[in-house]
Design a protein around this nucleic acid. Sequence first.
DNA 1: CAACGACGCTCGAAA
DNA 2: AGCGTCGTTG
Length: 802
Amino acid sequence: MGDAQNDTGVPPWLEDSGPGDAPASDWTASLLEDLTEPQRRAVLHTEGPLLVLAAAGSGKTRVITRRIAYLVGCGVPAWSILAVTFTNKAAGEMRERVERLLGGAGSRSGRGLTVTTFHSLCARLLRRYAEQAGLRPDFSIYDSGDQSALVKKVIESLQLSTANFPARSVLSAISAAKNDLLDAKGYAARAIDFSGRTIAKIYAGYERALRGANAADFDDLLLLTARMLRENEAVAGELRQRWQYLLIDEYQDTNKAQFVIASGLAGKGRPDTRGPNICVVGDPDQAIYGWRGADITNILEFEQAYPGCEVITLGENFRSTAPILAVADKLIRHNARRKHKDLFTKRSGGQPVEAVLCRDERHEAKLVVDWLRSLRDASGTGDGVRAGHAWKDMAVFYRTNALSRVMEEAFREAGVPYTIARGTAFYEREEVKSATAYLRVIANQADDVSLGRIINTPARGISDATVARLESRAAETGVPMMSALRELADSPALAAPMGLTPRAAASVQRFVGLMNSWTGAGSFMGEQITGSLADLVDRAIKESGLEDMYRKQARQSQSETDAERLDNLAELVSSARQFEMEYDPAADAALDGSADGTPPLLAMLRAYLESIALVSDADTIDPALGSVTLMTLHAAKGLEFAGVAIVGLEEGLLPHARALSSGNPDDMEEERRLCFVGVTRAMRRLLLTSAKYRTIRGASERTTPSRFLAEMPQEHLAVRDLAGDDTQWDPGPEFEPDVAVARKKSEVAGMFPPGCLVRHPQFGVGTVKSLTGGAQARALIDFRDVGVKTLILEYARLTKLR
DNA sequence: CAACGACGCTCGAAA
DNA sequence: AGCGTCGTTG
């Protein structure tokens, strides 16, 4: 490509001894110790494209880290190596492991080595080359909530109904298009029916709104970077010049945008070599992000994309016991569209995999907790069996987040320490979301979505009607909301023609004054506010009145959650303080080029907000906490635990109902791979459970055990049926409902009048507070033990006592 | 203008 | 069971 440096041949640092003739120091030799032959070949392959097909548990991370260390050992500067992983957590661990390996090399250093995720990398590149990408460096990153707020506004502005075009499905269409590098114009060209053409219009409006708000959604991070690398040769050349060695992990889960980014960064390599130094690592059997646009052909056709590339297969499993591996192997063989691959281990022995059929989800949860406890209590007997496992070496996986709740209750009840891996959970709390919205508007005044969140939170006399008027004013003049607010604050005479009362105008003026006190009129006064990030966060929370608002609420309601909210706000301040301590402005500037006179505090604020936006679920896991990890099967990718329980192996759950109803065999195969990923996380013990009855949307439903259980080798499964037969579970005469199928409120009104005493098989005795609903009757019941619940009478097994 | 209750709809995985 | 919307009330 147009990279002049590439034509000059060997880069300067390789002139004396290229990696071709490896330095035979003790240290580099030690990097090859205890590796298998294929692992060693992967480490030693330094120049030209390389595809490593790494089966689950085949020592992939070990190979990657050794290979990076080896490159550095060969004289490749660490700053010219870029490694892309799937989560920040994985990136951090990889960097640490490489540094530990390099530490053994004395003076050698990993300084400047970049290990990051696709999304973080792209965010940084877009800040550095904002202008070339069509953004400004202070752009906001919009999460799903922000996206849906924005797209709803667009749908309304187009006079469409969110009933016909639900934000959710419109956004998933837009996301799919973006992952496929299709812009609104391209989408419109392909639209064939009314719905498609309308979505194309919404897409176009949504893009306009995003750019107007100086914001990028998650998909934009990839899309805009891919487009920039493709269209801007100067930028692409500069980056290729810097990163001569590229390594991408979990390559099977990359989408088209990521493919374009990877190949854009790799370039074509110098003509006299075997091609660019791009190494991709992955396993087609663990491809589980098809719904996010991941294209498995990226890895399957890597050889065609990079002719002459070396392919190394790592097949031997070092992680799991023989029975666990046998279960995984037999299961995944049911996928028809698959490159045949043998999973094997030299280990023998190991406990059989356990499968238990439970009565319901509560029973299941309790059983899982008991099982984990037994793993921990297992005593190290004399026969070489190791002693009990620590909580941190155990995990529970589930298909959907909804299942975490029952598990959580069971853990709490049993007093077993647990952590739910949900990285964004904290930042999704209402109070935290409001606080960060203030910060986001401070960093990016065009951020209309964040502004909309805080303009009247806490209540400051700016009503919805006022906001609507300001919004239409902004839309008319084509400026961000904040500009309209400023305009009004500067010329109060505008209030009357806009239809605003003087009181409303005064409220707006006060709000603008508040914002200005943090930012200066429109331009961030970082130069003056040289204080700390934590102080800024603290000030925003206090001076906005957010803290007072929750303090008042906490006093009034005396409720736990309101006190919690105050704690969370304090927690946010300390997270900012933590970030501040670990923040390295030099490293930040090196990657995003923000040393261009950006006020230091603003640069740090941007980096902080970015880190918040890009946390992943797996990032939450901290072995030091010493707790059992609860997470989705998707989040479990790349991890391993001594003991694993997978719950909810039922038709409709795993495989998920959507895969059942789509009729697309690819969907079913992805579900199977998901199950496979879960199974192969287990090192020593594995428990698979299903519940015969599961509460779905408030109603208990009969389930069928997952087909995946039947597909596993029964000789390696120890199956227990604890669900009993139907007569045991069916509600006996005592629980016979007074109303079998009562659909309408009018039909039950006389039967359960407010104040009457009832018994529920699960919740116990309670008093009916009120009856609601029309076509679907519901009762609000205050139960003595569990508090107030709303029950759908059609399903509730209620006995009237008095 | 804010707060709350009632009602009806939908319901997957995530950076 | 949770969420958004609508209508009523404070």
